[in-house]
């Protein structure tokens, strides 16, 4: 309730760990200020016979206060840098992941281990749906299917306006800007469904611009890829036939994710 989505990817671990630090500091500061405020306002009421004393603080006291807040700022800055770097380090795929698969954050500066090659998927935002393209050229709309325990590099791209991609539990959110590739990554540790959305106001149906990540085993992933490729081919054949018969493209409800349906399914 008071925390973010539990982390299911190493970079999400980093983000969440620092979140709890910041939550603790913010709550402590807010409680301290408000507690002192209420106590002082009660304690020194004229109604309680309080007489004013014209206290003036000297410079060393102010410097001490500024210095302690300065230390806090510095500690937070160092933590911020360390965790940003750590979240930008792409981890190699694990033993359960797709092997021989596996660099940059809008995250412009992702660091990718040299001996591995992550599974690279292009996530393309368009008003108002997400299109995912896999290394073999297969594509899907709305849903992204990936193997578990596998480092997935997501290249973010837009065909129209600025969007922002985020799936809670799988890392941070990053801008999706036309003509500019930015990247993020995740390595999902649990099979199942993760939901996400666009987080940049992008016009009328922005609220419907949702997405879904399905994390499956490597064998299921391969099977899904093959099936999806077949579905796409079948759909294209159908369109060709319709064109030949009627001279105009027909509509057909094939596999849902072959057609652009946005988040409204």
């Amino acid at each position: 309730m008071f925390g973010p989505e539990s982390a299911h990817s190493p970079n999400a671990d980093d983000l969440n760990a620092l979140y709890w630090v910041l939550l603790a500091i913010a709550v402590a500061l807010a409680l301290a200020i408000n507690g002192a405020l209420i106590w002082l306002a009660m304690r020194y009421r004229t109604a309680r016979g309080s007489e004013p004393r014209r206290l003036r603080s000297r410079r060393p006291a102010q410097v001490l206060v500024a210095g302690s807040f300065g230390v806090l700022a510095l500690v937070l800055f160092v933590l911020g840098v360390v965790f940003t770097e750590s979240a930008s380090d792409v981890e190699p795929s694990g033993p359960d992941g797709l092997q021989a698969s596996s660099q940059l954050t809008a995250q412009r500066d992702l660091s990718i281990p040299v001996d591995t090659e992550p599974l690279t998927i292009t996530a393309s935002g368009q008003q108002w749906l997400w299109r995912y393209e896999y290394p073999d050229g297969t594509y899907s709309y709305y849903e992204l299917v990936v193997p578990v325990d596998t480092a997935v590099l997501v290249e973010l791209d837009s065909t129209d306006v600025v969007h922002r991609w985020w799936v809670p539990g799988l890392g941070g959110k990053f801008d999706v800007v036309p003509n500019q590739v930015s990247r993020t990554w995740f390595k999902a540790d649990t099979e199942g469904v993760y939901y996400g959305s666009s987080y940049q106001f992008s016009g009328a149906s922005y609220a419907a611009m949702r997405t879904e990540v399905q994390v499956v085993s490597p064998t299921e992933y391969q099977a899904w890829l093959t099936q999806q490729a077949d579905d796409i081919a079948a759909a294209q054949d159908f369109v060709q036939e319709e064109l030949a018969i009627r001279g105009e493209p027909g509509t057909r409800s094939g596999a849902a994710s072959v057609q652009p349906v946005g988040g409204e399914q």
Partner: peptide, 25 residues
């Protein structure tokens, strides 16, 4: 993050001004 410093000093000065005052609400 550096903003913490002046903001913190400001809040501490406000609280310090209340201390030992004769507050009329």
């Amino acid at each position: 993050l550096a903003l913490i410093v002046p903001l913190g000093v400001l809040f501490v000065n406000w609280l310090g001004t209340l201390a030992s005052g004769a507050i009329e609400m």
